[in-house]
C-alpha cells in the first residue's frame, strides 16, 4: 500500500468519528488498567502500613542503581514514542521510524536490566515461591514485600512486553507506509499505552526502591 488511506469501517459516518471512537476506547482501556494496578498499589499501601520497618529494610535489598538506570531508560523510550507520534502527525517518516525503533530498543533494554535484577534476587534467595530464605529475620514481612515487588514489577513487565510487541507491529506498518498525517491513529494509541506503562513505573520506582534511601 503506497498511498496511506485509512479504510472507513461500515459502522462509522466518517473518519473523524472513527478516530474519536478509537481514541476514547483506548482511554477507557487505560482506566481499566489503572484499576488493575490500583489493586496492587492498595495492597502495597496496606502492607507498608502493617510492616513499615520491615519494608524499609527489604527495600534496601533492591538495587536502586539499576532501578534508576531503568527509570532513565524508560523515560527516554517515551521520548522516542513522542517523537514517533510527532513524526506521524507531521509526515516526518524518518522521525517516525527512528522514534519507534528507539522505543523498542530501550523497552527491550529495560526488560534485560529487569531480568538481571530478578536473577540477583533469585541468587540471594529473595524470590518468594521459587527460592526464598525463610531463615532470615522478619522473613514473613520480607516475603510479603518481595511478593509485592515481583507482582507489581511483573505485571508491569508483562504490559511492557505487550507494548514492545505492539510497537513492533506499528513499526512494520510504518515501514510499509501505512500511516500519513491524515491517518495515524494506531501510532497515537500505542503511544498512549506506552506512556501509561511508563507512568506506572514512575510510581513503582520510588515506592519500591527508595523507601529508605535518604538514611
Amino acid at each position: 500500500m503506497s498511498e496511506a488511506v485509512a479504510a472507513l469501517e461500515g459502522q462509522f459516518r466518517d473518519l473523524e468519528q472513527q478516530r474519536e471512537a478509537a481514541s476514547l476506547g483506548m482511554w477507557i482501556f487505560l482506566m481499566t488498567e489503572l484499576l488493575l494496578f490500583g489493586a496492587l498499589f492498595t495492597a502495597y499501601a496496606v502492607y507498608r502500613f502493617t510492616y513499615p520497618q520491615e519494608f524499609a529494610a527489604a527495600s534496601r535489598d533492591l538495587e536502586a542503581g539499576l532501578g534508576a538506570i531503568n527509570t532513565a531508560v524508560l523515560i527516554c523510550s517515551s521520548l522516542g514514542m513522542a517523537l514517533a507520534v510527532y513524526g506521524a502527525q507531521t509526515g516526518g517518516r524518518k522521525r517516525l521510524l527512528f522514534g519507534l525503533a528507539l522505543a523498542i530498543v530501550l523497552g527491550t533494554a529495560f526488560m534485560v536490566i529487569k531480568g538481571v535484577e530478578y536473577y540477583h534476587h533469585f541468587e540471594h534467595a529473595e524470590f518468594p515461591g521459587l527460592r526464598f530464605d525463610y531463615a532470615r529475620p522478619h522473613a514473613q514481612a520480607t516475603q510479603v514485600f518481595f511478593f509485592l515487588y515481583f507482582a507489581m514489577t511483573g505485571v508491569h513487565a508483562i504490559h511492557l512486553t505487550i507494548g514492545i510487541a505492539l510497537v513492533c507491529v506499528v513499526l512494520f506498518k510504518a515501514w510499509r507506509r501505512a500511516y500519513s498525517p491524515d491517518y495515524h491513529t494506531p501510532v497515537e494509541l500505542s503511544g498512549l499505552y506506552w506512556h501509561f506503562v511508563d507512568i506506572v513505573w514512575i510510581f513503582l520506582f520510588p515506592l519500591l526502591y527508595l523507601i529508605d534511601i535518604h538514611k
Binding site: T32, E33, L35, L36, F37, G38, A39, L40, A43, P128, G129, L130, F132, Q140, Q143, V144, F147, L148, A151, V155
Partner: peptide, 21 residues
C-alpha cells in the same frame, strides 16, 4: 472488574506457589 481480575491472580499465585499475600 480489573480489581477482581488481579485479586484472583494473586489468589491463584498464592495457592500455586505457597507465598503469602
Amino acid at each position: 472488574t480489573p480489581v477482581l481480575a488481579i485479586s484472583l491472580v494473586l489468589l491463584a499465585v498464592e495457592r500455586a506457589f505457597h507465598v503469602g499475600i
